[in-house]
Amino acid sequence: MPTTVETVRDALVQARRDRSLIETAKLPVPETLAEGLAAQAAVGRALGLAEAGWKVGIAEDGTPIAGLMPGPYLAPGDVYEGAIGAELRVEIELALRLSRDVPFRPGQPYSRAELLACCDKAYLGIEIVESRLANWFGKVAFPLWLADAMGHGGYILGPEIDIKTLDDLGGLGCFISLNGVTIYDQPAVHGNGDPMVPFLAWANRKRDDLGGLRAGQIITTGSLCGGVLSPGKGEVVTKLSPLATVALTLR
Rank of each mutant, 00 (worst) to 15 (best):
A46P: 09
A46K: 13
L47H: 07
L47D: 03
G48N: 09
G48Y: 10
L49C: 04
A50D: 15
E51S: 10
E51I: 05
A52H: 02
A52P: 02
G53W: 00
G53A: 02
K55C: 00
K55D: 01
V56H: 03
V56L: 05
V56R: 01
V56F: 04
V56I: 06
V56Q: 02
G57A: 08
I58D: 06
I58N: 05
I58R: 09
A59G: 06
A59I: 04
E60F: 12
D61C: 13
D61A: 13
D61I: 14
G62S: 10
G62E: 10
G62Q: 08
T63I: 11
P64E: 08
P64H: 07
I65S: 08
A66Q: 12
A66S: 13
A66D: 09
A66Y: 04
A66C: 12
G67L: 01
G67I: 00
L68D: 00
L68Q: 00
M69H: 02
M69P: 00
P70L: 05
P70Y: 03
P70S: 12
P70D: 04
G71V: 03
G71M: 03
P72I: 12
P72M: 12
Y73E: 04
Y73M: 05
L74N: 06
L74Q: 11
A75D: 15
A75C: 12
A75R: 15
P76W: 09
P76D: 10
G77S: 09
G77H: 09
D78P: 02
V79G: 06
V79H: 13
Y80V: 03
Y80L: 03
Y80I: 03
E81Y: 11
E81M: 10
I84A: 15
I84L: 14
G85P: 09
G85C: 10
G85V: 10
A86M: 08
A86Y: 04
A86F: 04
A86H: 04
E87A: 12
E87C: 09
E87T: 13
R89W: 05
R89G: 09
V90C: 14
V90F: 12
E91Q: 11
I92M: 15
I92Y: 13
I92W: 14
I92G: 14
I92E: 13
E93A: 14
E93R: 15
